[in-house]
């Protein structure tokens, strides 16, 4: 079930409600790469209550996405 696209000059994602699991979850597709992630109801509720700036550490490009793989290969 499609919900829509959220697009800025910095990112473009398609969001929809996914019903493949035992409960619904938000499906987020990065339209530039096709990469998909999911957020469940509790995670979304948590996001809604995040204080100002709490997401900032996650916006650091080096945090997960653009970083050298860890020596043990644990990071992708």
């Amino acid at each position: 079930m499609g919900v829509g696209e959220v697009v800025s000059e910095f990112a473009a994602v398609a969001v929809s409600i996914d019903h493949e699991g035992n409960g619904p979850r938000l499906r987020i597709e990065d339209l530039k790469t096709g990469h998909v992630g999911y957020l469940d109801a509790l995670e979304l509720e948590t996001l809604a209550w995040l204080p100002e700036g709490a997401l900032h550490p996650l916006l650091d490009p080096s945090l997960h996405r653009w970083r050298k793989p860890a020596p043990n290969g644990g990071h992708h």
Partner: peptide, 12 residues
């Protein structure tokens, strides 16, 4: 950030 703070850069 939209307050001007540098949040990070790739491949730090």
């Amino acid at each position: 950030s939209n307050t001007g703070r540098l949040l990070g850069y790739p491949f730090n």
